[in-house]
Amino acid sequence: MSANSRMSLAVHVLAWLAYDRRGTDKEVATSQHIATSVNTNPVVIRRCLGQLKDGGLVEVTHGRNGGWNLARPAKDITLLDVYRALPEEPVFGPHASDPDAECYVGFGIRHTLSGVYREATEALCRSLSATTVADVLRDTLAFHAASAPVTVTVT
């Protein structure tokens, strides 16, 4: 099984926009600029940006100088907002095939696990609501600063 990376991609895109848009007025960001940071194809970024736009998290300017911006400040976008902007996909799901209804375990496993998974998803949403894109950007930049090689000048 592979992990769903859409959430990581979307948060990366939003954190990049928050970083790139800070301070002065700059030219508008393009999917090509963002794709360089993510190290992926701009088409993947455009697909993600479309979902984030539909979710009200980014806005686009069309035309010669067109590009992408956050729809609101990064401090006002929670990871729960990002999660909800992406296509709905359950965190956990049932087996691909129906269990044996004649088996004591198979008979009730789906019912039992659906309650457990609902509670786990609610906990996930509570956790995501406590973190903003600004928090992610701050921690990312702090990690970069702490990991940067120290330059020593000898005179």
Rank of each mutant, 00 (worst) to 15 (best):
L79R: 02
E122M: 10
C48A: 15
L14F: 12
G93Q: 08
N65H: 15
L113Q: 13
H111K: 13
N4C: 11
R138L: 07
N65A: 12
F107G: 11
P90K: 00
M1F: 06
A145M: 12
S37E: 15
T36Y: 11
T24N: 07
H144T: 12
V13R: 03
D139T: 08
A120W: 13
P90W: 00
L9Y: 11
L14P: 00
P73N: 09
V105R: 02
T151N: 08
G67P: 05
T30G: 07
T30R: 01
R84A: 05
S97Q: 07
K26R: 10
K26G: 06
A3T: 14
Y104C: 13
H144N: 10
E27Y: 08
C103D: 12
E119T: 06
V58Q: 01
L79G: 00
F107K: 15
A35E: 00
V133C: 01
L80N: 01
E119H: 03
A134L: 09
S8E: 13
G106P: 04
G23R: 06
Y104E: 14
R6N: 10
P149H: 00
V105W: 03
V44G: 06
M1W: 04
S31N: 05
S127Q: 12
G93V: 03
G56S: 00
A71W: 06
T153M: 13
A123V: 08
N41R: 10
K75S: 15
D76W: 09
S127I: 11
G115S: 14
R138C: 04
